[in-house]
Design a protein around this nucleic acid. Sequence first.
DNA 1: TGCAAATATTCGATTATTCATATACACGAA
DNA 2: TTCGTGTATATGAATAATCGAATATTTGCA
Lengths: 119, 119
Amino acid sequence: MPDSLRRFKAGIFQALAHPTRIAILEQMKGGELTVSQICERLALEQANASQHLAVLRHKNIVVSRKEGNLVFYSLRDPILSQVLDLMREYFQKHLQEAMALLQEEREVRSYPHRKEARR
Amino acid sequence: MPDSLRRFKAGIFQALAHPTRIAILEQMKGGELTVSQICERLALEQANASQHLAVLRHKNIVVSRKEGNLVFYSLRDPILSQVLDLMREYFQKHLQEAMALLQEEREVRSYPHRKEARR
DNA sequence: TGCAAATATTCGATTATTCATATACACGAA
DNA sequence: TTCGTGTATATGAATAATCGAATATTTGCA
């Protein structure tokens, strides 16, 4: 596979790599939403939501449609919903480790110089 | 959905969000590989490969097995293969746009102050 | 026209990621 | 033990991502 394609893939994953953007995409599973609906449901600042939507838009992960004052966003391809569902399955399958991972991240934030456990 | 799940998903995507790591995972589809095999096939510096493998290991995306001097890496869970397969389907489906996106990125690098097209 | 609502963009400070370099560690053979 | 090979980690500089605050833009309505 050419490196250009890998960079494209990496770009998509990068766009998915933020909890807020994942939350936004989950909301859009149920269909189109306006920016203010997204802000309301997720308790986001408008500017912040707009920034994250811009990231998703630039990668063509979502599409927008303007109607009067409102901009409706929706998921462009249901494959991405499937991906998020698979990830939930993965998470549940490895729930114990997943929790440990999140805990570890918290600890790293508190004590940044502690070492990884030996295997 | 709890925010912990979103952070977990985001963390996995973050780990996938690098061309080199994608290349490494692709190599591992065929089965276990040692670090030096990976370096050789992808023309990576050993330290760089090790750094990327550490990222994948910390998210439990790959597992390692030591045999003498060698460390064999492999994909941990076939669900992640499924995710990668779904993403490949997505990429192929949108290949044309993908190319346009990559082209756009090149142009942005050359002329960083040009604006996004209006919709 | 002027105003208000909805959305988008810019800016600056902060934090995170990445790479190369150097160094450390672990193992097997001598 | 010492050496050589394979792998991992530490460090620091460069780059990129993030957030909040401020500002723009677009639209509908008076």
